[in-house]
């Protein structure tokens, strides 16, 4: 076999090995204790998330996991909870997310801030396409409330995204509610913020992950409630 044939063989071998590395897997489990103050008073609870990362070739990977929390409101027997399972796939500049969830709080903003809602099951999906520093995507949420009325809510959010000292995302929310949104994640994702204008109501949420301490601090503000959170990770 000549050298060039061996080169081809090696290239193929590397390709197979690279693709074969898809079987490599890494799992993370994080427990945290949320403690905060919201419109319904003080609340404390327990959060849990577990995520597995699997390589998909050299330029892609898949994250699958579950996560959620259970909190108890001070002076209220009813617990607040939200749990969901998700799958994220990134392949080159294309990515998508699928998530199924259930709870009696809305899908938490920045994975932290909760808003009370009727018990429901729902699904969230997102498709994202980047072209270097600029990209666009489409996100959608559907929720079916487990009540006598069986109310149904949905939203479709087209968005554009920029990568400039972090990720900037500007979105439009269509569906049951109409709104505009902007979110930002600092490059290392230590600082995240989310601003929404929905049905003439403004909401602002900011989340700060401490570097020295296993702790996340958050403040959220809407028209009618103020939330402050400390999540201790252990």
């Amino acid at each position: 076999m000549g050298s060039r044939s061996r080169i081809l063989l090696i290239i193929c071998t590397i390709g197979i090995l690279v693709l074969g590395s898809a079987s490599s897997m890494r799992a993370f489990r994080i427990e945290d204790m949320p403690f905060g103050f919201g419109s319904e008073g003080w609340q404390a609870g327990l959060g849990l998330s577990q995520e597995t990362i699997r390589s998909l070739g050299l330029f892609g990977y898949e994250k699958t996991g579950i996560g959620g929390y259970l909190t108890h409101l001070d002076g209220n027997d009813e617990a607040s909870s939200w749990f969901g399972g998700h799958r994220q796939v990134y392949m080159g500049n294309v990515g998508y997310t699928l998530e199924l969830f259930a709870g009696n709080t809305r899908r938490p903003i920045l994975s932290t801030f909760m808003t009370a809602a009727d018990p429901h099951v729902g699904a969230y999906g997102e498709f994202n396409r980047m072209y270097g520093e600029v990209g666009h995507g489409l996100a959608g949420t559907a929720q079916l409330f487990v009540t006598e009325l069986g109310e149904f809510e949905y939203s479709i959010s087209p968005y554009i995204q920029f990568t400039r000292q972090g990720i900037w995302r500007f979105s439009l929310s269509l569906g049951t509610d109409f709104g505009l949104g902007m979110s930002y994640a600092e490059p290392t994702e230590r600082l995240k913020l989310d601003i929404m204008l929905v049905n003439e109501g403004v909401s602002f949420h900011v989340l700060l992950s401490m570097t020295e301490l296993p702790m996340t601090l958050g403040v959220g503000m809407t028209q009618d409630q103020l939330q402050a959170f400390v999540r201790y990770l252990f």
């Binding site: 050299l58 330029f59 990134y90 080159g92 500049n93 294309v94 990515g95 994202n128 396409r129 980047m130 072209y131 270097g132 520093e133 990209g135 990568t163 972090g166 990720i167 994640a185 490059p187």
Partner: peptide, 26 residues
């Protein structure tokens, strides 16, 4: 192509690792 644009791959033999910057999720 555009599906790969912006990705940066650095291979270091000494560290025995490949680092790939992915713009899609920064």
């Amino acid at each position: 192509p555009s599906a790969m644009r912006g990705q940066i791959l650095v291979a270091e033999q000494e560290k025995m690792e490949v680092r790939i910057y992915q713009p899609i999720n920064n």
